[in-house]
Design a protein around this nucleic acid. Structure first.
Lengths: 201, 201
DNA sequence: CGCATGTTATTGACACTGTCAATTAACAAT
DNA sequence: ATTGTTAATTGACAGTGTCAATAACATGCG
């Protein structure tokens, strides 16, 4: 008979590898994220990760999914405490921007598909859908309240693109110094708001 | 004495390697862009590229710079023929979007610094500055004409972030099908325009 | 013409990486 | 204690970036 390896234990070991991989990514950069290095850091043998991940792309995919769930949780928490829909929208934007600024390497790994592996996995798409659902809820409420002029399925891509672009440019060092980024952030907020927020008559 | 290798010939061989590298990138993807493969395609020996590029990062940097010059040239050409500044702004946006859609791998290599190598080179920064200067010229003209409400150094980052984000999301397959992208593109244009275009009184 | 010289290009070699087959170690049930 | 199944390790191989050692080679001088 096999040793007692419950699915829970397997899942825990898997999660441990994922967390160690994220640690490497954030501390030493994407180039240091190698399966062998992960094995050393995790104090396991060279090919043990292959027991939990089919290949390297599967590992990075798992990192993406884990991090998306984490981000979703942060978003949920960010909007508890206020019921004002437009305020919630701002809080969600802040959460994403803050995440992108604090975890640049991780952010890039998550959202720049094609950095590793070409096509999105089923689970990744599910995690994205979950995240989008959380984001779009306050937007839907604000829309039915008549506060904004575009429905969520049209407004969210606009806001997402603006924030994503700002973060990616900043990540690439193309937004100048910190002051420039702050200015950009405020300008984007203002320009966008003027573009879709319904002004009271 | 050395063999007759004029700087022109050296530059030509170098450019040839760059063009071949771009060909590999666009035809076979970023993973196929390897120095050894480039050598085979270019019909030279394994380490000949090292005579022209210090290391792989120098090669990708050269690709970036070459492509930025190419993009700048396209932009210059796009706005010849009309003197209407706001129309020129639209044409420049179309040029960038069209470039990003037609050359996704190349676009990502250029603008996602950190994909290869960590810090920007001097020459890359110069090419970026050149490009920005071309982009911002019509915006400055439109600003002094009173057509738009933000000066170029503030408006350009906003527009750039929006377009960059849209292209990167699309590149990652996060903008849905083609129809969704078209919708997003038009929504962004509209929302942004409402945010900064001065409406005639 | 033949040789020295400095330059260009190729090959050899090394450390890494992803990956998997072959092998060993661990352990529950008998 | 034996055994059979499974977890985990080691061996091995093809690629990759990189550079030192080597060859090829056009030119200038004797």
């Amino acid at each position: 008979m096999p040793p007692e390896l419950t699915p829970e234990i397997i899942a825990e070991k898997r999660k441990n590898l994922i967390l160690n991989a994220i640690g490497i990514l954030e501390d030493e950069g994407i180039d240091a994220l190698t399966l062998r290095h992960l094995a050393v850091v995790s104090d396991v043998s060279r090919s043990t990760p292959y027991l939990y991940f089919k290949d390297k792309a599967a590992l990075t995919d798992a990192i993406r999914i884990h991090s998306l769930h984490d981000l979703s949780a942060r978003c949920k928490q960010a909007i508890t405490g206020t019921g004002m829909h437009v305020e919630q929208m701002r809080l969600l934007g802040d959460t994403l921007i803050s995440f992108g600024l604090r975890h640049p390497e991780l952010y890039q790994l998550i959202f720049v598909v094609g950095l590793t592996g070409r096509e999105k996995s089923k689970e990744f798409c599910k995690a994205i859908d979950q995240y989008k659902k959380i984001i779009e809820a306050p937007m839907l409420a604000a829309y039915v309240d008549g506060m904004i002029s575009l429905p969520p399925e049209r407004l969210n891509p606009v806001l997402w693109a603006a924030i994503h672009g700002m973060l990616m440019l900043n990540n690439a060092g193309l937004t100048g110094d910190d002051a420039s980024f702050v200015q950009l952030r405020s300008d984007i907020e203002q320009v966008l708001a003027m573009g879709f927020v319904v002004t009271k008559p």
